[in-house]
Design a protein around this nucleic acid. Sequence first.
DNA 1: TATTGTTATACTCTATAACTATA
DNA 2: TATAGTTATAGAGTATAACAATA
Lengths: 148, 148
Amino acid sequence: MAQLAFLVHGLLAGRAGGQDLSVIQARLLGVLRDRTPTMNELARLLGLDKSSVTGLVDRAERRGLVTRAASARDRRSTQVVLTAAGRDLVSAAAAGFDADVTALLAQLSAADRDQLAAIVSRLLVAHAAAHGVDLFADVIPPGSPDGR
Amino acid sequence: MAQLAFLVHGLLAGRAGGQDLSVIQARLLGVLRDRTPTMNELARLLGLDKSSVTGLVDRAERRGLVTRAASARDRRSTQVVLTAAGRDLVSAAAAGFDADVTALLAQLSAADRDQLAAIVSRLLVAHAAAHGVDLFADVIPPGSPDGR
DNA sequence: TATTGTTATACTCTATAACTATA
DNA sequence: TATAGTTATAGAGTATAACAATA
């Protein structure tokens, strides 16, 4: 299991790196694909301290991948928004990662592939049920909106 | 697959962190459990630049987890050796990780567990065969000498 | 000349603590 | 007072380039 985890993690890191992104930068952009959270929410989503998020967003903004926008409702808050360039980058990384996983699974028989998908799905559901509810709903790594 | 990879990776990071180890420090100690490689070999095993390994070993040595020993055959070389304290630490982390994986898999039926083990094993073998030979033999994360 | 390891340097990533502005 | 975000600071982890010692 650990070997598999390292392998898949390595595929992700490789595809992120192909776009000159670290894994955490890729996760940041991935989270922003369907949300415009505040800095605080981003810290919770990524499991980081808010000061870490400041630096993370600073570097992404410097590269033109995200922008900060003033919040309308609370003048203390800042919303982080993905730019078109950022969206292109994360989409390319996600597509590559999906292709990698597909290629990896292609080495199994169709029956094995189906079995694996079913068992892994049961495992994740059981784990989510055993621990808090949506442990995963908000921490989806880029390239896996469909759970693949 | 990505969710599972993140989950297992998180278990590993948590158990390493429980011993005040980063994942890379845990991998360093894990690699040293059955080897006394040179700095150069360590760089290859961990996939890092040799200058990165210098810093990694410096910090581990400062904590008394590893020692540097002059190589007998080549006076340019340094061999890195796990101390008793380092061995205790990595063993504790490995045992905890194994327990976590066992607990995770316990949520599946025995039949699913067997199926999963068989399929993952086939997947890793197929991947290793498709890419260079022992891609994994030398990059075993701590806690998984048995591939579990 | 080539190789082993370290050093100098620079950057990313992370956290804690102190601070500013707003609520 | 409490919260949102930034800044100051410190440290781990990483790489590139230059270096010393040895082969």
